[in-house]
Amino acid sequence: MAVLTVTNLSKTFNLGTARESRILDDISFEVSGQTFVSIVGPSGCGKSTLLNIISGVEEHTSGDITLTSDAGGPARMGYVFQDPRLLPWRSVMKNMMYVQDDQSRDTVARAERYLDMVGLKKNADFYPGQLSGGMQQRVGIARAFAVEPDLLLMDEPFSHLDAITARGLREQLQDIWAQSKKTVVFVTHDVVEAVELSDRIIVLQPGGLIYEDITIDLPRPRRQSDKAVATLQADVLARLETLKAMAAAEPVAEPVA
């Protein structure tokens, strides 16, 4: 089981002439193993920056991030991006294998199994350009699960898809997650999506502070039509509306000198 610990994490961007913009401000949280955590918040509150820092794509200014794994050895991460980020000149299967540590037969079988789980095993030899946007995103999800990550990061993976495709993929994601039980950090601006998928929702506010940490204790699989899910969605939405109202009343602080 992997545990992600974020301690006093801050990120500032240097704007030149001794001015800087603070994106994340001394935030701390822990994600224990086999938990699905969503990070929500209004645009510009630092959700994607947080994910990029955890993944190592971006540097942080101060604080500490640790990812520990019971299995020992370096912790493995998977990442599902907003867009599929597939190599257009490689087939679906070769894209799956591109990110794998070893290229053994077992790994190929595992990649095929995850492709099968997203319903694309028969498309393994296709180029990404021959697939629809939704199918490409399913390849991106299968690729992330197929590396058997200790921690899976997902950055608004359904935001570029139409509503029906997104709903289908959310249901598929719940099924795969139920089988694999990976530790997931999921960034979204969609509260409905967050409630449907998560065990816990961390709400970020403008300026990069944690506004609220909500635990969701509803049975799975969840569907939007479930009454309890709908009630909780309305509740979280109301809390976010309050946050928005507060943000409007107190505009984001000017960059600090």
Partner: peptide, 25 residues
């Protein structure tokens, strides 16, 4: 940049990045 970030995130070995990402691109 997106594909390079993807490769970095998954820790793809440099030789494979050159062969499968850079040269075809």
């Amino acid at each position: 940049r997106d594909l390079r970030d993807m490769s970095a995130t998954y820790d793809v070995p440099m030789g494979r990045r050159v062969r499968d990402l850079v040269l075809p691109a």
